[in-house]
Amino acid sequence: MAKSIAGPEIERLIQLLAKLPGLGPRSARRAALHLVKRREQLLRPLGAAMAEAAEEVKVCSHCGNIDTRDPCTICTDAGRDRSTVIVVEDVSDLWALERAKALNASYHVLGGVLSPLEGIGPEDLTIRRLVERVAEGGISEIIIAVNATVEGQTTAHYIIDQLDGFDLKITRLAHGVPVGGELDYLDEGTLSAAMRSRTKI
């Protein structure tokens, strides 16, 4: 086992940073060193912001978004189309759609996708809450905006089955050629999905 070259406090900082997505041990060491070198400009403000977030950030009990209030800002926005609900895997997907200003609708965060191999079943997601929201009335369309993975598609089919019998329109995001994409650089799966999802012009 390699001997530690830094104090336990710095080692703990490195270990915690290494748990973040996209940061391995080497990147975590670089980030920790950068933070420590700029402790007044970065480390102290970051520590304060993280402490405040730990106290103030809540999960919206209605849609699953993350905000400092419950219900969240989106759920309390009177200008939102509450009859349309976009179903996403995670909060990061919700934020991506909001940045794109794709649709002024409401959301429902599943908290992941069904994955038997990882032991994630329907009870681990918020699918039951989605069905309850539909049963409460006022929703006319569900847009399933999950990733185009095997697990994502399995989850989409399960949701469709659970919503069978309700009088609502269920749609999903189109899959295919991205804006600005060149056919020669796309994989076969994307091209096949694009061909199947072709539309009249």
Results as ranks from 00 to 15, higher is better:
69 R>A: 12
164 D>N: 15
186 L>S: 09
50 M>D: 00
121 G>M: 03
66 I>T: 04
191 L>K: 08
59 V>N: 01
105 A>F: 01
121 G>R: 06
68 T>D: 01
70 D>Q: 06
145 A>S: 14
89 E>A: 11
126 T>P: 00
195 M>D: 01
37 K>P: 00
38 R>N: 15
94 L>C: 07
36 V>E: 04
125 L>D: 08
45 P>D: 12
153 Q>A: 03
87 V>W: 06
5 I>Q: 14
127 I>Y: 08
124 D>E: 13
14 I>L: 02
93 D>C: 02
75 C>P: 04
119 G>E: 04
191 L>Y: 09
176 G>L: 03
134 V>S: 05
97 L>G: 09
106 S>H: 08
42 L>H: 14
190 T>D: 09
32 A>Q: 10
165 G>W: 11
169 K>R: 15
194 A>H: 05
157 H>R: 14
112 G>P: 11
183 L>H: 12
38 R>G: 06
166 F>V: 04
65 N>F: 12
113 V>N: 07
182 E>G: 07
12 R>H: 11
92 S>V: 12
200 K>Q: 12
155 T>R: 04
23 L>Y: 11
77 D>Q: 00
39 R>S: 11
107 Y>C: 03
135 A>R: 15
150 V>Y: 03
103 L>W: 03
144 I>G: 02
24 G>Y: 08
76 T>W: 01
79 G>M: 08
172 R>N: 06
46 L>M: 14
99 R>W: 02
97 L>H: 10
187 D>L: 10
192 S>Y: 12
125 L>I: 09
2 A>C: 02
126 T>Y: 08
139 I>M: 02
97 L>A: 07
167 D>M: 02
23 L>S: 02
176 G>E: 02
130 L>P: 08
47 G>M: 11
145 A>E: 11
29 R>K: 15
88 V>S: 06
24 G>K: 10
166 F>K: 04
188 E>W: 06
7 G>S: 13
179 V>I: 15
176 G>V: 02
93 D>H: 05
112 G>M: 11
64 G>F: 09
20 L>R: 07
102 A>E: 13
3 K>Y: 05
159 I>F: 09
4 S>H: 13
4 S>I: 07
68 T>G: 00
148 A>F: 13
157 H>N: 12
16 L>V: 13
122 P>I: 01
125 L>P: 11
63 C>S: 09
48 A>Q: 15
30 R>P: 07
170 I>Y: 06
148 A>Y: 13
40 E>D: 14
190 T>Y: 10
68 T>Y: 06
198 R>Q: 12
109 V>M: 05
89 E>T: 02
142 I>R: 06
30 R>G: 06
29 R>E: 15
135 A>G: 10
98 E>R: 01
97 L>Q: 08
35 L>N: 06
26 R>Q: 14
47 G>A: 15
199 T>H: 09
177 V>A: 02
52 E>D: 15
20 L>I: 05
118 E>W: 00
63 C>R: 10
12 R>K: 14
182 E>Q: 13
70 D>G: 08
165 G>C: 11
41 Q>C: 00
